[in-house]
Amino acid sequence: CHSECLGNCSQPDDPTKCVACRNFYLDGRCVETCPPPYYHFQDWRCVNFSFCQDLHHKCKNSRRQGCHQYVIHNNKCIPECPSGYTMNSSNLLCTPCLGPCPKVCHLLEGEKTIDSVTSAQELRGCTVINGSLIINIRGGNNLAAELEANLGLIEEISGYLKIRRSYALVSLSFFRKLRLIRGETLEIGNYSFYALDNQNLRQLWDWSKHNLTITQGKLFFHYNPKLCLSEIHKMEEVSGTKGRQERNDIALKTNGDQASCENELLKFSYIRTSFDKILLRWEPYWPPDFRDLLGFMLFYKEAPYQNVTEFDGQDACGSNSWTVVDIDPPLRSNDPKSQNHPGWLMRGLKPWTQYAIFVKTLVTFSDERRTYGAKSDIIYVQTDATNPSVPLDPISVSNSSSQIILKWKPPSDPNGNITHYLVFWERQAEDSELFELDYCLKGLKLPSRTWSPPFESEDSQKHNQSEYEDSAGECCSCPKTDSQILKELEESSFRKTFEDYLHNVVFVPRKT
């Protein structure tokens, strides 16, 4: 048989008469490798580009789960590009990614509803959504962080984005990388972005840091009482949809009607710091009717980097990364020049730590249904340095008659930039024990000054392991946590139920 035959053949030295091919099969003959313009397919066939392209389009058009959109890589027609490569849609070739590779997620039936953290986790790592997304989240724990972890990498949506009755959302900033909504599939009414009845939605994105392009379709905003109209108009300008909307697409009466839409800028007039305090004062603000001013709200939190936005980490279910302080308005003076500047002394802060701070007014709604208010920009203030805590785990070892090696770990709280350490030492008198000992005694162990690591005695271990207080009263049991108490109650309830079950099964009433 021919060298490319495997198993047997019907005619000697003829690659077209093989029972099976050793390498690849091409047009009725066995070959060692697939010549151009053919590609290896499933490690035994040679196919042309049209064959591989037909497989790709067949799966793409069917949208069946589990099928493969075949691509070409290293002269092979394979189910998908290997790690580190992405497909070129024009020629199906796998090309190296520039940075992290995109991950295209194809949605069944063309859309997916995100109504819980669990459903959001199914899209973790996706960068391109081939379909439409509907966000409908009523509640949950730590929602802002969970949504950002699972949806934060999405850069492109081919269909539309719909935010509907998501009472738990305060902001859409968890879509931190969303840059493009194509609108290839539109919501009824030709809408590519749809926001309806979101009672706590206050911000779409921080438009000073976020760009969003909507290729096709219109915007729809109705019944978002805490979303200011200025935020919607800003989205029109940034996304390129200005002029597409009709009169009733953006409701003037049901958007922002319960919001404090600040239209003035508060400026800080005085800032002073110490290692654990920050004193702030800002310019006074009074609405047209000074009785509408209820006070100020001061927001602050630790910020290692200057990239904080107002609604980071917030949701309507209680999660809030900001510390909020309510401040009463100052006494009002008739003389504008003698107006008191409101302020606040922030206490209990960490030394040498940068804080993000902003302040906003708290006002009631005027009778004319106009909203007044003022808010400052987010500023960054760093507390002063102070003395560091003591170095940890000092170790001293003498390696000769004239040297001592000293080692330690950095302090747990540096409280500033540590530039150097101060080492103090003092000579001590020799131990009298060394002169009084009889060095001729056998088995004498000389006193040693070398360091030995501390260890816990058996008594201390027994005390720590004991669940009861000892007789001397030195140790006591740790208080039980809520989960331990709940577990004990469940076990007790189970024992009672099981005992009742045994009584009912074992003891049967005697027939009379």
Rank of each mutant, 00 (worst) to 15 (best):
I379H: 05
K253Y: 07
E187P: 05
S119M: 11
I395K: 14
T127C: 10
N255G: 06
I114E: 00
L227C: 05
R244L: 10
Y223A: 08
Q199S: 05
V104T: 12
Y270T: 13
K234E: 08
F268L: 06
R291C: 04
V359L: 06
S260I: 14
F358V: 06
D249W: 14
T323L: 13
H222V: 03
Q121H: 11
A149Q: 15
S260R: 14
L298T: 02
F299M: 06
T353A: 06
T361I: 14
D315L: 06
T185Q: 06
S401M: 09
L280M: 07
T213V: 13
L252T: 11
G313A: 04
L201P: 00
V381H: 02
H222K: 01
A385H: 08
L108H: 12
N340W: 15
W352Y: 15
E156I: 11
L392Q: 05
I163A: 02
S158F: 15
I357R: 00
S274A: 07
V104M: 12
S166W: 01
L172H: 01
L107S: 09
W322V: 05
P304H: 11
I114N: 02
F299E: 06
G373L: 13
E237F: 14
R138D: 04
P394F: 07
S239K: 06
M235R: 00
G125D: 06
I250L: 07
F220M: 09
I278A: 14
M346F: 12
A374F: 10
V359K: 00
S132M: 00
N211F: 03
Y167C: 12
N130E: 08
K409C: 14
Q121F: 09
K177T: 07
L172E: 00
K301G: 04
T118L: 06
E122V: 08
R370M: 06
A303V: 12
S173D: 11
L133G: 00
S400V: 11
L180A: 09
L252W: 13
C126A: 01
K407F: 04
P287W: 02
E246G: 12
I134C: 02
L294R: 01
T215C: 07
K162C: 15
G256L: 08
Q245R: 07
C228L: 03
M297D: 11
L180C: 10
L147H: 01
A356E: 01
A316P: 14
E155A: 05
R332K: 06
V397P: 07
S119N: 14
R164L: 14
N255A: 06
T254A: 08
G373K: 04
G140E: 13
D335E: 10
N141G: 12
T118P: 05
I157H: 01
K242Y: 06
N263S: 04
E231R: 07
G348S: 11
P304K: 03
N150P: 09
I114S: 00
H233P: 02
Y191M: 06
L279Y: 14
E264P: 11
Q258L: 13
K177Y: 06
A259H: 13
I232V: 05
T386W: 06
L123A: 05
S166T: 08
L298S: 01
E148Q: 10
I129L: 12
C261L: 02
G139Y: 04
I188T: 11
L180P: 00
K360L: 14
S269T: 14
E310S: 03
L293C: 11
L265E: 15
F296V: 07
N340R: 02
V238Y: 14
T241A: 14
F299D: 01
P342T: 08
G373H: 08
C317N: 04
R182H: 07
Q121A: 05
N387M: 14
I378E: 01
P411A: 04
E264T: 13
S389V: 02
C261A: 07
D384L: 13
D115V: 05
D276A: 07
T185D: 10
H210M: 07
V359Y: 02
N255V: 02
I154M: 15
I404A: 10
I327D: 01
K242F: 06
K177F: 07
P329M: 12
I188V: 10
P330R: 15
T323W: 15
H233T: 15
L143P: 01
G373M: 11
T118R: 05
C317P: 04
N334S: 05
L349V: 07
Q339G: 13
D384R: 11
L204Q: 01
T383C: 06
Y167N: 13
D328H: 04
I134M: 04
K209Y: 06
S376N: 01
H233F: 02
L133W: 00
L123E: 01
C126E: 00
A120Y: 12
L331M: 11
D249P: 06
M297P: 00
P388I: 01
K301T: 08
E187A: 03
Y305K: 01
L204P: 02
K209I: 07
I405T: 04
S389T: 03
I135A: 03
N255L: 06
I135T: 01
H106F: 04
P329F: 04
K277G: 11
K226W: 13
E368C: 07
R370V: 08
T371N: 08
L147Q: 00
K234L: 05
I271S: 06
P287E: 11
C317V: 05
S396K: 09
S321V: 15
G125I: 01
S173T: 05
K409V: 15
D328F: 11
W205I: 08
W344C: 11
K209Q: 15
Y285F: 13
